[in-house]
């Protein structure tokens, strides 16, 4: 039990260290740039305005927003303090809406879409990869190149292809949005149905993209495991092949959890861009409209939220893996 506690303490500490680093980066990166992003925004906001007092107004607003007249370190503490209160600032483009208010619904849409999609893609990919390793001949020859090709289709490319195929050409799915545009979110059956039908394309496009990479990883892992000594030994003790395949699948699949943890950042980034294609009301689309509208506080907050999401997922996967794979237990807990 002592080993466990040490392991978890280490993991949690590491989680907070990366979190702090992420917050600092999120704060400092834009401020390190030669061109002051804030004045750039003000310039953009003020362009086309002839009223000098309106320009002044914008300056005042952004000064209040960022407190840029104060020294950097003080700004940082204000930033952190606000952050701890859940205050992510006020949106420029949707003034006077609070950024946290805009993001709170977007986060739910994104999590609701990506978490199941990535998990399903991961599971299906692993199953196919294991199958390819076990069946080998024929199936493997077809599946491997297909999986390799699929895994190289960019997420947005898959999104556009699916959209054109199923929504534009076959017209069996809606083209964009998270629900029908003439509805107001509520818990009616009609709304839920609309959400489900809008969910299909983004969901499956993310699933398809994640399957390929996972299948390839799982296949080589399974081949490696199938040649392991314990397989031969178990066979010679009369254990059925089906049972042995079970051992192999489990042993090959567990490290895939780490594989998922390592690639989750890339997967989420890809899926966020895919969201834009479907105008899905999640963080990706929010980020896109924020960038188009030069809404600096919203951009900054979205990137921070995405980072924190990725950190949490990685952290959880790490913990889960440590829990269920005795190989890690043995290697980590003793150390």
């Amino acid at each position: 039990m002592k080993g466990y506690r040490k392991y978890f303490t280490k993991k949690i500490m590491w989680f907070f260290i990366t979190l702090i680093a992420a917050v600092i980066l999120n704060f400092i990166l834009p401020r390190l740039m030669p061109a002051d992003p804030v004045s750039a925004i003000t310039g953009k906001m003020a362009s086309g305005m002839t009223d000098a007092s309106a320009v002044q107004e914008i300056y005042k607003r952004y000064e209040a927003e960022f407190g840029t007249n104060k020294p950097l370190i003080q700004q940082f503490f204000i930033f952190v303090k606000n952050l701890l209160h859940g205050d992510l600032g006020t949106s420029f483009s949707q003034y006077p809406r609070k950024v946290s208010n805009i993001l709170s619904s977007a986060i739910l849409w994104t999590i609701g879409l990506q978490l199941p999609a990535i998990l399903v893609g991961w599971l299906l990919g692993n199953l196919l990869g294991a199958l390819a390793a076990y069946i080998r001949k024929g199936f493997d020859k077809v599946l491997l190149p297909v999986a390799l090709f699929l895994s190289n289709v960019p997420a947005f490319g898959m999104a556009v292809t699916m959209l054109v195929l199923f929504a534009v050409t076959l017209k069996i799915a809606p083209i964009s949005g998270g629900y029908s545009f003439d509805m107001i979110p509520n818990f009616s059956w009609r709304f839920i149905k609309s959400v489900i039908s809008h969910y299909q394309l983004p969901f499956w496009s993310i699933v398809l993209v994640s399957i390929g990479g996972q299948a390839i990883g799982m296949r080589s892992m399974s081949i490696y495991e199938l040649n392991a000594d314990y397989v031969k030994y178990a066979r010679f003790l009369g254990i059925k092949d089906r049972k042995i395949v079970g051992y192999v699948f489990r042993n090959a699949m567990l490290p895939q959890i780490t594989g998922l943890a390592l690639s989750i950042g890339t997967m989420i980034s890809g899926a966020l861009v895919a969201e834009i294609i479907f105008s899905y009301p999640g963080l990706g689309s929010t980020m896109y409209s924020a960038i188009t509208a030069a809404d600096y506080p919203l951009i900054s907050a979205t990137t921070l939220i995405i980072t924190i999401m990725v950190l949490i997922v990685t952290f959880v996967l790490d913990l889960v893996y440590g829990f269920i794979d005795p190989r890690v237990k043995a290697a980590q807990f003793d150390a």
């Binding site: 990166l29 061109a35 990725v310």
Partner: peptide
Amino acid sequence: VIPSFVLLILISYSIG
């Protein structure tokens, strides 16, 4: 652990 895409967005945006 910090997704590189996020850093990429932040830096690219700040460059202008």
